[in-house]
């Protein structure tokens, strides 16, 4: 369960995120949708405690990211934008290293890494050094690494960027499984179709503010269109013209 209220971040004169309120619940996939530069990454970074908010607060399973960041981090698995690996470590070692940092015992992290490697179909490259991995192999490794401590909440920043069709399918299947297991999943994307294909709930964000949080069906109804894409364009566009959302 991820909640935020009044979340604000400024970079100098620019207010990148302006009083964002959102809620992502367990057992659902929530999509953070918005054009480039909308403030998706900045919002996620505040949620996963890499950036400190200038205003507002957020909670992971009720734990404040501002006041107890370490405790909050234990409850999150994070796939940041363009997640990089350690090139001299194998995929398996990359995954297990994060297990170590999460404080897992050797036996547990071994077992979990093996399980994730199988689940993400990584067997062919799991024991190769990460240097020279394809984008798909890298994302899979980074994802497995983020899940090694079996976090209740999973945050992903544009996870399908640069992935081929097969890798996207594996990712979608995995997110579906995680949802079925009751995890709370929050991911960002600027691609409408992707959000439509995966999400139970959509948060549309533009110019640092949340325009709407609703289910895809509600969105269509609200924009008065059958196409989600059309709904997205209209809703973002409305805001751009200064009209009500």
């Amino acid at each position: 369960m991820i909640e935020a209220r009044g979340l604000t971040k400024r970079f100098g004169a620019l207010t990148a995120v302006d009083s964002v309120a959102l809620r992502a619940v367990d057992g659902r996939i929530t999509g953070l949708l918005g054009p480039n530069g909308a403030g998706k990454s900045t919002t996620l970074r505040m949620l996963y405690t890499v950036l400190a908010p200038d205003g507002g607060e957020a909670w992971i399973d009720g734990i404040s990211v501002v006041h107890a960041p370490l405790e909050a981090r234990r409850r999150m698995g994070v796939l940041p934008h363009g997640a990089g690996l350690y090139p001299n470590l194998t995929a398996r070692e990359n995954i297990e290293y994060f297990g170590t940092l999460q404080g897992l015992s050797r036996a547990v992290r071994r077992a979990r890494a093996a399980e994730l490697i199988e689940r993400l179909e990584m067997a062919t490259f799991a024991d190769r050094p990460a240097k020279g991995f394809s984008q798909g192999q890298r994302v899979k490794t980074a994802l497995a690494r983020a899940l090694i401590h079996q976090p209740r909440n999973v945050l992903l920043d544009e996870p399908t960027n640069g992935l081929d069709v097969m890798a996207v399918r594996t990712l979608r299947r995995l997110l579906g499984e995680l949802r079925a297991e009751g995890h709370c999943i929050l991911f960002s994307s600027h691609v409408m179709q992707e959000v439509a294909a995966l999400c139970d709930e959509v948060i549309i964000i533009a110019a640092g503010t949340v325009i709407v949080q609703a289910t895809p069906d509600e969105l269509r109804a609200r924009a008065g269109t059958q196409s989600l894409e059309e709904a997205f364009v209209r809703l973002v566009g409305l805001e751009g013209e200064g009209g009500p959302a």
Partner: peptide, 17 residues
């Protein structure tokens, strides 16, 4: 190095000061 290869951000999400 960590920053350039993009491994710094995931590292900072670990529950380690």
């Amino acid at each position: 190095g960590e920053r350039e290869r993009g491994s710094l951000e995931p590292l900072l999400t670990m529950p380690v000061r």
